[in-house]
Amino acid sequence: MPGVLIVAEHLQGELRDVTAELVSAGRQLSEQGGGRVVLAVLARDPDALAEAGRLDGVDEVVRVPVAEQEFNAEIVTAALAALIEAREPAVVLAGFTVNGMGFGAALALRAGLGFATDVVGCALERGQVVALRRFYGGKVEAELEFPQRNRVLLLLRPTIWPAAAPGGAAEVTTFDGAAPPPSVRTRHREFVAPPAGDVDITLADVVLAIGRGVGERDNIPRFASLADTLGATLAASRPLIDAGWMPAERQVGQSGKTVKPEVYLAFGVSGAVQHLAGMKASKTIVAVNSDPDAAIFDVADYGAVADVFAVAEELEKLL
C-alpha cells in the first residue's frame, strides 16, 4: 500500500513543531496521489504523543512502542526499517533536525531508500517524487529525482511548510513489529538546558545582531554601545559564539534562540540557513553586509552593501 509515512519528532513529552509541518507537506503529497498520511510515533510510552499527533490531515497515527522514550538513533533506525518493510510507503518524511541528521542516512542505507536532506519543496510528478534542495549557501537550487527507487526518505527543512492544525480525526493503531536493534551502543544520560544568562534576547523589540563582519573581538564594545544608544538588544550569529566573543545566550539561530522583534538589524551577518531560521519571522529586517551576494539580503526588507563600521559611524552621528 503506497502512502506517506511521517516520523513524528518529540522531545521530553511533547511533539516538536516540525511534526505539524511534516504533516502539511505529507498532505500535499497525498493530494497529488501519494495515498494515506500515516504519522509514526516512536516512544516507550507513545500514547499521549500519539493523541497529540492526530493533526488535521493525518489519516492514521501508528504507535510504535520502543525501548526508550527519548530519541535513540539505533533504536529509531531499526524500528523505522521494520515499519517501512511492513507498510511499504512511497515517501517517508522526517525533519532535517539534529535527530533527523542522527538517523536519516543510516535508515536510507538500511532500507534501500532514495534519500535527500534539507529539502525545501517536494511533489509527485506522474507518481514520481521530485524534491527541491539548495546548494552553496542557498545560491543554487536543485531539482532532485530518485530513479530506480520505490521509496524515498526526505528530511525536510523546518519552518518552510505551515503547521497542520490540531483536531484531526485520525485512527490510532499500534505497530508491534519493531524489533530492537541487535545492540544499543548509545545511552542517554541527561538533558542539560542552556544557561539562562542575564538577558533574554527573545523579549527585545529591537535586536542588533552582529556577525563575522565585525572582524575582531575588540570591535564588539563599539556595537554593544551602539545597541544601547539605539535601545536595541545586542545579539550575534554562531561564529561569534564559537569564537567565545559573545555568550551563548545571545545567539540567534537554530542552535540558539528564535527571535521575532519589531526590528532586526543584521550587521555583518552573512545569513547561514541556521541563522535565518532564528530571525526570518522578525517584522522588519535591515541587513548591512559588504558582500552583495550575502544570503541575508534574501530575507531582509532593507539592505545596504556597506562597511558595518561606516554605518555604525553614521548612526553614532545621528543619535
Partner: peptide, 16 residues
Amino acid sequence: GFRVRRLLVPRSERAE
C-alpha cells in the same frame, strides 16, 4: 540517494 535533474538560480525577493 538522489540524482540532480536540473539546477537553477533561485528567485528571491531581495531586500530594497
